Computed example of a mutant assay.
Amino acid sequence: MAKTPADLRNIESLVEIVASLRGPDGCPWDKEQTHESLTQYAIEETFELVEAIESAGAERDQKMKDELGDVLFQVLLHSQLASERGAFTLNDVIENVATKLIRRHPHVFGDVKVSGSADVVKNWEEIKKQEKGAKPEYALNVPALPALQRAYKIGKRTEKFKFDWENVEGVMLKVEEEFDELREALDNDVDSEIEHELGDVLFSLAQLGRHLQMEPEQVLRKGNARFEERFNKMVELAKAEGIDWGALSTEEKEGYWLKAKAWLKK
């Protein structure tokens, strides 16, 4: 049986716990994991943290504390896996990020002067370029992100290269054009064509969000939350009237959907 550390507020205790989970008498699930198998959880935990940050009410801080812990666990677990194969340890990770932060903030840890956050961002990008070495002049170099967020970032990069629509109206015309091509693909009933055109529609909508100064990932998260709230309220209203929502016709369900929307606007 693994020994429980005495001081659970110490990061070293957490490192010890994770090592125990991977140890000979540890947890079968944790012992089976690899960097690759854990990828999905890194994504899930990050998004759950974002959801906690965007939540409201008295429980927000507790939710954030929980989700920050889950994200930290992912960092520790990957560091433990790397340590086991002699690649690096958590201390190496800490030293690496500390060094990077000092290097990228010469206005805090050096004598560089800045007049505001715009200068900070400009310097940050220049330092990153120096770190990564010379790249093709017009390379996009967009980091790995969820697809909608990456589409937005691609647009931000091409905007810098002056390859962009002049205004919102221009993007709207492109969105309408892509919708027309999607309709045509649906008429042709060819899956590969439909997939292609649907992707173009989603990409164009991401660029529309960018031109409206709205980050599409955040907009969609709010839209998802709004739909879930309305759906739950719709089912709740039906139940309150003694009605089995699942047995209703599509038209009847639509009626409760409208009731839920009206109720939530009160």
Rank of each mutant, 00 (worst) to 15 (best):
M1C: 02
A6W: 00
R9N: 15
I11P: 00
E16H: 11
D25R: 10
D25M: 08
P28Q: 03
W29E: 09
W29F: 15
E32I: 05
E32H: 12
T39W: 13
T39R: 09
E44D: 10
E45Y: 03
T46Y: 07
F47T: 07
L49E: 05
V50H: 06
E51N: 10
E54Q: 08
E54H: 14
S55L: 04
G57I: 00
D61L: 15
K65C: 12
D66A: 14
E67W: 02
G69R: 01
D70F: 08
F73S: 05
L76K: 01
H78I: 05
S79F: 01
E84D: 14
G86S: 02
G86F: 06
A87H: 07
D92I: 05
V93S: 10
V93T: 05
N96C: 06
H107P: 00
H107I: 00
H107W: 15
V108L: 14
V112N: 04
S115C: 01
E126R: 11
K128H: 13
Q130F: 03
K132H: 11
K135V: 09
E137L: 15
Y138P: 00
N141T: 11
P146W: 10
A147M: 13
A147Q: 10
G155D: 05
K156T: 13
F163Q: 11
E166N: 15
V171L: 07
M172D: 06
K174F: 07
E176I: 15
D180R: 15
E184N: 12
A185C: 14
L186D: 05
V190W: 01
D191W: 08
E197W: 03
L198Y: 06
D200R: 00
L205T: 08
A206Y: 03
G209K: 03
H211I: 00
H211D: 09
L212G: 06
Q213M: 06
E215C: 02
E215Y: 01
E217S: 14
Q218Y: 13
A225M: 04
E229Y: 00
F231D: 05
N232V: 02
M234I: 00
V235T: 12
E236G: 03
A240I: 00
L248Y: 02
L248D: 01
S249E: 10
A260L: 04
L264I: 01
